[in-house]
Amino acid sequence: MSTYSVSDTTAAAPRAAVTLADLSGSYGVGLAASLVWLAFGLSCLYWPDVGDWSRTGSLGIGAIVIAAFILFGTFSADYLGGAGQALRKRAPWLVAFGAFVTLWEVATAKFAWLPLPFFPPPQSILEVYTDDLPKLLDSVFASIKLQLGGYIIGATIGFITGVSIGWSQKIGYWVHPVLRFIGPLPATAWLPIAFFTFPSSWSASTFLIALATGFPVTVLTWSGVASVSSAYYDVARTLGAKPSFLVLKVAIPAALPHVFVGLFMGLGSSFAVLVVAEMIGVKAGLGWYLQWAQGWAAYANMYAALIVMSLLCSGAITLLFRTRDRLLVWQKGVVKW
C-alpha cells in the first residue's frame, strides 16, 4: 500500500498577518468558540447562584482559561501541526457545546428555569468529579474489571463455538438446538437464578456478561464461516492445504468481518447486562454507583456517573473498531466510527 501513497501535500506556508477576510473565514469560527466559552465563564461569575455550590468560581475561571486556549490555538493553528488542524475542524462543535453549557448554567444555577434538584448545574457535576473522585474511580475500575472479564470469556467461547458449528456438521447437530433455545433469551432473565446458583455475585455477573456477549458472537462467527465461498477451499486444497490450514488460514480470516459484527453486537448487549447486574447484585461499579446516588437523591452524582459511563462505552467501541480497522485493512470501504 505504501508504494502508492502520495506524501501529504505540505501545509500552506504560515501567513504573516491576519486580514479582515480571515476573521470571517478560517479564524471566525475559532474566534466565536472562544467568545462563547468566555461568555460561559462570565455567566458563572457574574450572576449569583440560586443554590449553594462550591465550584462555581473554579468553573468560571476554567471556562475562561479554555476560551484563552481556543483563542491562542485558533490564531497559531498553522504552527501547531496536527493539533491545530484538529482544533480548526472541531471549532463549530466548540461553539455549539459552549453555547449549550452556557444555557445550562443560566437555566439552572442562575435563574432556576429548570427545576432543582433534578437538573443540577454544571458546577455541581464538577463538584462530584473533584470531591467524590475516589469512589467514582473505584466504581470505574470495578466496572471495567467485570466487563472485561465477562466479555473476553464470552467472546472467546462464542468464537470457538461459532467456528466449530460452522465447520463441523456433527458439532452443529448438537449445539445448534441448544443455541436456538437458549440464545434468544435476554441474559438478564437469568439474573435471579444466576445470583442463587453461583458462589459469588461477581462470578454470576461474569457469567451473564459472557452469555450476552457469546450469543451474537457465536451466531455471526458461525454464519461467517458457513458463508465462505467454496472456491477458496478448492484453491487451498489444490495447493496442498490440510484441514487445519483450511480452518485457521481460510475459514477464520474469511469470516473475520462477520466476527467483528458479532463482537460489536455482543459489546452492546453486555453493557446492558453489566449495568443491571451491578444495580441488582454486585455492590460495586458504575451501575451500583448510579443506584446508590438515586437512593440519596444525589442527582449530580447520577449525571456525573452517566457521563463517565458513556465515555467508557464509547471508548470500548472505539477500541473495538480500531482493532477491526487494523486487522481488516484488506477490506475496502470499512465504516469509520
Binding site: 465461498s229 472456491a231 477458496y232 478448492d234 484453491v235 487451498a236 486444497r237 489444490t238 495447493l239 496442498g240 492445504a241 490440510k242 490450514f245 488460514k249 481460510v250 480470516p253 474469511a254 473475520l256 481488516l328 484488506w330 477490506q331
Partner: peptide, 30 residues
Amino acid sequence: PHPSRVVVFQDPTLFPWRTVWDNVALGLEA
C-alpha cells in the same frame, strides 16, 4: 488434490485478506 497438479480458475479467487506476496506464498505455506 495434490500440489503437483495446480488449477488456475476463471476467477482469480485471490484471498482478499492476503497481500500479493502472501497469496503467492499460499501453496508453500500450506
